[in-house]
Simulated scan of single mutants.
Amino acid sequence: METEINTNPRNAGLCKPRSPQVEPKTRVRGKDHFRTSASTKARRHGYIRVSTRAQATDRQTEALRLECDALHIEHVSAVADARPVFEKVMRSLRPGDTFIVLDLDRAFRSSVDAMLTAADLRNRNVAFRILSLQVDTTTPEGELFYTLLAAFAQFERRIISRRTREGLAAARKRGAKLGRPRMLDEAQVLAAYLAVESGEPTQAVATAFGVARSTLERAFHQHGLNYPVTRKKKENCYE
């Protein structure tokens, strides 16, 4: 969920930015407050992110307030698949606008993400600033520094990735079992399979072993057992 702050001192208490009077406002569906039908003035958009609502945004807000026309606050983890506020701000940027963050990691998941986004903004004629690093990609010096910074960050990420792969390979050689431990051991899987084979409903057997039906079915396949099973028919006895 987004919190948008208007940084105009005369409207300091408002959460919705006020567009110039010459530009009519039209409501749109979704979480946007208002979107103007035309944009004649370049705007400076500040993006603030914290992982949870329990975390304070004061440090970022105070640093960006004087530099931006509007602040967009998002409460989401850096590694989240979806960042609706960030994505909405990216879509709303127009040529001549400026996208501003306090720290590089507040807006990007990785250096690759940062490089791709910076390149996209540059192609759209949108400026990009990182206040803590005094980086302004509108200048040749700022663009060079940002490129070098992103390259070093990417190098560090690749080194960490390589060390992680080497560590996992060494653990496998030692016989360590990697990944999440299985819910059922081999004996339990076989017992559950025999119960299902004898005619017991799969859901009932899964409940008896304290696992979901999908977990039980996956365990059957992991142990090379045929599923769905061919249930054994009960023999009728005649006197």
Score class of each variant (00 low, 15 high):
Lys177Ser: 12
Leu64Ser: 04
Met90Asp: 03
Leu64Lys: 00
Gln134Pro: 00
Glu141Ile: 14
Arg157Glu: 06
Asp113Gln: 12
Lys232Thr: 13
Asp113Phe: 05
His223Thr: 12
Ile100Ser: 08
Ala208Leu: 07
Val50Arg: 11
Asn6Phe: 04
Thr137Gly: 00
Gly179Asn: 03
Leu93Ser: 08
Glu186Thr: 05
Glu239Val: 11
Ser110Ile: 08
Tyr238Cys: 07
Val89Gly: 09
Arg106Leu: 01
Ala119Asn: 14
Lys25Gly: 04
Arg43Val: 13
Ile48Arg: 02
Arg10Glu: 11
Arg182Cys: 02
Val135Asp: 05
Ala114Ser: 12
Leu66Pro: 03
Thr202Met: 14
Arg174Trp: 11
Val89His: 12
Ser77Asp: 10
Glu67Phe: 03
Asp120Leu: 11
Ala42Glu: 07
Lys232Phe: 03
Thr36Val: 06
Arg83Trp: 05
Ala212Leu: 07
Ala204Ser: 13
His72Asp: 06
Glu166Ile: 10
Glu166Ser: 13
Arg44Cys: 08
Arg174Lys: 15
Asp105Met: 06
Val101Asp: 06
Leu190Asn: 10
Thr139Tyr: 09
Val85Glu: 15
Glu87Met: 12
Leu133Ser: 11
Leu121Ala: 03
Ile48Cys: 04
Asn123Tyr: 03
Ser92Gly: 07
Phe152Met: 14
Ser37Trp: 07
Met183Phe: 02
His221Trp: 10
Ala170Leu: 05
Ala195Tyr: 04
Pro20Tyr: 07
Asn11Cys: 08
Arg10Gly: 05
Val126Met: 00
Pro140Ala: 15
Asp32Cys: 02
Ser132Phe: 03
Arg231Asp: 07
Pro181Ile: 07
Asn8Lys: 07
Arg10Asp: 12
Asp120Tyr: 07
Leu104Gln: 04
Thr7Pro: 05
Phe99Glu: 14
Ala170Ile: 05
Phe209Lys: 03
Thr98Gln: 10
Phe128Glu: 01
Leu131Asn: 01
Thr147Val: 02
Gly175Asp: 14
Gln134Leu: 08
Ile73Met: 03
Leu168His: 00
Ala42Lys: 09
Gln154Lys: 13
Thr230Phe: 00
Val135Thr: 03
Tyr227Arg: 02
Phe152Ile: 09
Asp136Gln: 04
Glu235Cys: 04
